[in-house]
């Protein structure tokens, strides 16, 4: 993993008085999908939020494409090329779908070619282009959430549980869109609880436990080793 777009070195993060990340070490390879796995509450979301700057790292370093971004503000990290899709369908429900998309293209007008590609991946967004985002269904909101991250050129996507709570049909649409993103050569760090999706999309995987990375390697190795899955997560990938 010498060509890593993101390197996290011994990162510790506190939320209020709680010490959540206990020295996370992680590398995200360029142009590949890295799955961040683990049980609930082990620090996956906090890791993504620390990378984007929502929670400051108390200790350690975050290096993005060769630059130390540990001290940068969230907006500066975003402008450096990190797209973040939060787990709670982080859309602006008071704004229309169009306004959400235009807003997401923070560095300039929304490119029409890019918009058309987004419409192709998520057809409902074209239908509800002028509607308030708050009136969309859960699946459509999640589509908008990912589409927003795709509104302009990003060097790295941080995506937090994009299929959480969605109907199977929507999950397959989301997986298709993420596959397209992967085909375009995007670098993605993806938190996902659905192991079938994780297995289908991931090139690499990192497993967290108690605020640390306890295993990192190729997804295929994890997917084919039931004993390893059982030991790391107490789950079988086949179950997903």
């Amino acid at each position: 993993m010498s060509d890593a777009i993101l390197r996290i070195e011994n990162v510790h993060t506190d939320i209020a008085q709680y010490h959540i990340l206990h020295g996370v070490d992680l590398q995200v390879p360029r142009g590949a999908v890295t799955m961040l796995l683990g049980r609930n509450g082990v620090g996956k979301t906090t890791t993504l939020r620390t990378i984007i700057g929502h929670w400051p790292a108390r200790e350690g370093r975050i290096v993005f494409d060769g630059d130390d971004i540990t001290a940068l503000k969230t907006s500066e990290r975003a402008r450096a090329g990190i797209g973040y899709v939060p787990e709670d369908m982080g859309i602006f429900s008071d704004l229309t779908v169009e306004e959400n998309m235009v807003l997401a293209a923070a560095s300039g007008p929304l490119d029409t070619g890019r918009r058309d590609r987004i419409f192709e991946a998520f057809p409902p967004l074209r239908t509800f282009w002028r509607s308030p985002a708050g009136t969309l269904s859960g699946g459509q909101k999640q589509m908008l959430s990912i589409a927003r991250a795709m509104a302009e050129e990003r060097r790295l996507f941080l995506i937090d549980e994009p299929t959480k709570g969605l109907a199977p049909a929507i999950v397959s649409t989301m997986a298709g869109a993420l596959r397209d993103l992967k085909r375009q050569g995007a670098s993605i760090l993806l938190v996902e609880q659905n192991f079938a999706v994780a297995k289908a999309l991931g090139d690499f995987a990192a497993v967290m436990d108690d605020g640390r990375i306890v295993w990192a390697g190729e997804m295929e190795q994890l997917a084919t080793d039931a004993g390893l899955q059982e030991r790391l997560m107490g789950l079988s990938m086949e179950a997903g």
Partner: peptide, 24 residues
């Protein structure tokens, strides 16, 4: 204006606006 749209976004969730790249 686009400025007003950013203000509305900040009102709804300042972190999300910041995470897109706007200096809140």
């Amino acid at each position: 204006s686009p400025f007003g749209t950013v203000l509305k976004a900040i009102r709804e969730n300042d972190f999300r606006a910041e995470a897109i790249g706007y200096r809140v």
